[in-house]
Design a protein around this nucleic acid. Structure first.
Lengths: 208, 208
DNA sequence: ATATTAATATAACGATCACTACAGAATATG
DNA sequence: CATATTCTGTAGTGATCGTTATATTAATAT
């Protein structure tokens, strides 16, 4: 049962946290192994032995990000007492999360890899799947609201989910451009102002 | 008056267009000089002689993008008969522009450089300034609407301008994730649904 | 003690990056 | 013609990228 061989000389979880911070701030491409060795205070072979490589390390860092930074936001979607409260929670807690640190950092899921041709395909797909999962969670919550009578059945839940996801994604750009918490919260307020009109008559049923 | 020395034997404007297409699709970092030499059908020394270097070429390609792709969108802001029509034009023409080509490409101004620490500072600042200029244009149009009586004076034009800019930026992410023209137009409709509520009582006066 | 196993540090790998020295080729001017 | 000027293609610059071969160190197992 006991570990054989020379024991590891560093805190794996702490090293992973530092990698997450770095990937969050700099993104996947702009974070070099040299950056990581410095931030994690490890030599490359230790990182490769413990995490597998840059891409595997990023994936694990993203897991940590989702389960730590995203927890409050996405758990609140299902527990909110109404779809309206859920969407407001989404945008408000997003505004607070994006402006939590010393600088406005936005969302790692949106920003960490450019969605461009030629970018690391596996990383881009992983982030894209994460975003798609979030939109799906919003749509599920809205559909639940339909079944509970909060929203009329003819409303397009997919269109509304896409809309709130779009606003949330845009907030990452704003945050990286230096938007204050107050400005981000104002954007959330503006987006929520249309709620009544949105659920009374869905402005567009179509989606893809 | 006549040109001295060996004349250039390629079309500078056509080469620039090809560079713009490439930067638009792949972004600044993911576009290598090797990619550019292939797409422009030129050898590096010709590119350096004609454009100065990768960064200068990008800046010129961005100028071309703004004046070609962005023209319709941003000229329409000032010529629209009302602020409401201007914002609707912004989002609708954005939706059409982002889904104009064979694939949904989103906006070069939003996507071409990651807003991350460690990215090329000059390029990032250039794009950031472009985005700030766009928000300012929206705010100017809204203030004009206040002076023309369309919007009540106590409304925060800056907050509303930020909101529409946020939606537009988010649409770039959606487009890159594969959103169809129809889906993008639906997002625009959702965003416009709240217009009445927005200009009746500004939900948040604050900004920065 | 000796052997085994695993983590460490040093140093370097090949690949790719943006960029450029150099020489040849194509035009102008005198 | 000769000469100056500018563009073009070849080839290669040093730097940095992610990754790894090698040897040493530190623990357990026998």
């Amino acid at each position: 049962m006991a570990e054989r061989g020379r024991p590891r000389n560093f805190d794996r979880q702490q090293a992973l946290r530092r990698a997450m911070e770095l990937f969050w701030r700099k993104g996947f491409d702009n974070t070099s192994m040299a950056d990581l060795t410095e931030a994690m205070a490890l030599r490359p072979p230790s990182i490769y032995a413990a995490f597998g490589g840059k891409e595997a390390l990023f994936n694990e860092a993203l897991d940590l990000y989702v389960s730590s930074q995203g927890r409050d936001i996405w758990d609140g979607i299902d527990t909110a007492p109404s779809a309206r409260a859920a969407m407001e929670h989404l945008l408000k807690s997003t505004a607070r999360s994006y402006s939590a640190g010393p600088g406005s950092r936005g969302c790692m899921v949106v920003l960490a890899a450019p969605q461009m041709e030629g970018a690391n395909a596996a990383v881009s797909e992983r982030l894209k799947a994460e975003r798609a999962g979030n939109v799906a969670a919003l749509e599920r919550r809205l559909k639940r609201a339909v079944s509970e009578g909060e929203i009329a059945p003819q409303i397009s839940c997919r269109a509304i989910a896409n809309y709130f996801a779009t606003v949330q994604h845009g907030m990452s750009i704003q945050a990286r451009d230096g938007a204050s918490r107050r400005a981000l919260l104002a954007v959330a307020d503006c987006a929520m102002a249309g709620w009544g009109s949105l659920v009374e008559s869905s402005p567009a049923a179509g989606r893809e």
